[in-house]
Each structure stands twice: as structure tokens, then as C-alpha cells.
Design a protein around this nucleic acid. Structure first.
Length: 205
DNA sequence: CATAGGATCGCCT
DNA sequence: GGCGATCCTATGT
């Protein structure tokens, strides 16, 4: 499908498809941007996990659970869903499918691309190695994403105040560089714990 | 109202 | 490999 608009912003139709597994796979190599207080940072998406809606025991929306927190997951594809994990980390997800079908993708890793100095400041590191973008808590730390950003529309570029968007910059991801496996930290999800819904991209040198 | 536990991370041994 | 940090959410009384 066409994923490139004139601005390069990944459009709504990319996210509203009813196939969260496919979208999680296709997000690898896309570039995730944030603009907070006019500070723009970006990273190449390297790891994702799919959460497959009301029948997925690992999903916050399992069994059609609706609460103040999960209500965001019921919005249209292309909406940001951010929540606090272990009282410490903000985890960033992208809602997929259409309204009232709460599928989502957790972004678990980025390779820092733009705004390196800002990311250094956020991480407290003098040297920003690419591995510092590994892990969902580290993604939000480097990009500055917080729980208050839950509900943002990521299908339009808002380079001021608080904005999140994704661009297709033509980065090629070959299938053989992508590892698929079970999701992390969801042992409670019983028979769904072993589903191969995690996608990791290791770029060849 | 009380309580248990989590889609994690980094430091410690 | 183990563990503490840290607080919101969901559930049950």
C-alpha cells in the first residue's frame, strides 16, 4: 500500500488496517519523531510488539475492558497510547485498527537519529550509544514522551508544544534481518504468552 | 478504603 | 541472576 505522503508522514490508513501483526512488522525502519517544547528528536524504530485486541490476554483491553486508562485504546488507529509501568516508566504504544477495536503496538526500541544532544541531556549520558534506545522505557526517556501525551494524534506533524509523528524515510528492512518471538514480561497472559508478536530488527552492517 | 502487582531498568553480587 | 525503585490501576470488601 502507499505509505508515503508528500510530507513523508505515515498516514491514517496505515494504522487503521485490521492487522496489528502486519503493522507491527512494517513499523520497523520507520522514523519516530517527537517535538516537545520545540525540541525535535527522532529515532528509527527497531523493535515492536503487537497487542491484538479484546481476545489477547496480554492486552490491557482484554475482554473489552474499558477504564479511564484503556479508553484511549478504543480510539481510531494512529492515536498514541501511553501509560505508566512499574510506577517509573512511560511506555509508548500506537493504537491500530478502527474506533472501538482496541489493538495497539508497543514501541520497544529505537536507534537514535536526530536531536542527539537533546537525547543526551534526557538520558544524562555524555556519549549516546545506539543501544541506549533499547527497551520501551528507554524509548520514551530519549524521546521525552510522557503519560500526558496519551491520546495525541500521530498522523499529523505538530512541531510545537507536544507532537508525535512517524515518517517513512525509505529505510529498507529485509525480512531476514527481522527476528520474531514471544513478547516480554507478560507471563500472566497464559496461552497467549507464547504468541510470536514481538519483532526485532538488527540491521546488517 | 485497602491491597497486590505490573507490556521495566540499572545496579548489585 | 537478584532486587529495589515507585505509583497508578484494577479489583475486592
Amino acid at each position: 500500500m502507499k505509505q508515503m505522503t508528500s510530507s513523508g508522514i505515515v498516514p491514517r490508513e496505515f494504522f487503521t488496517r485490521n492487522d496489528v501483526i502486519q503493522i507491527a512488522n512494517e513499523l520497523l525502519g520507520k522514523v519516530l519523531y517527537t517535538s516537545f517544547n520545540h525540541e525535535i528528536t527522532a529515532g528509527i524504530i527497531t523493535e515492536t510488539e503487537a497487542y491484538a485486541g479484546v481476545t489477547d490476554k496480554a492486552s490491557h483491553a482484554y475482554n473489552n475492558l474499558r477504564t479511564a486508562r484503556t479508553e484511549i485504546m478504543y480510539r481510531t488507529g494512529g492515536t498514541a497510547y501511553v501509560y505508566l509501568c512499574y510506577g517509573i516508566h512511560s511506555l509508548f504504544n500506537i493504537v491500530t485498527s478502527v474506533e472501538d477495536d482496541p489493538q495497539a503496538i508497543l514501541i520497544r526500541g529505537i536507534e537514535p537519529l536526530h536531536g542527539i544532544e537533546i537525547m543526551k541531556k534526557r538520558s544524562g549520558k555524555d556519549l549516546l550509544e545506539s543501544k541506549y534506545g533499547n527497551g520501551p522505557g528507554n524509548v520514551t526517556k530519549l524521546l521525552g514522551i510522557r503519560v500526558i501525551d496519551s491520546g495525541l494524534d500521530i498522523c499529523k506533524k505538530i512541531p510545537s508544544e507536544r507532537g508525535i509523528w512517524i515518517r517513512d524515510e525509505g529505510i529498507q528492512v529485509s525480512g531476514e534481518e527481522v527476528k520474531t518471538g514471544p513478547r516480554i514480561g507478560i507471563q500472566y497472559a497464559a496461552e497467549d504468552a507464547d504468541l510470536p508478536y514481538r519483532f526485532q530488527w538488527s540491521r546488517k552492517k
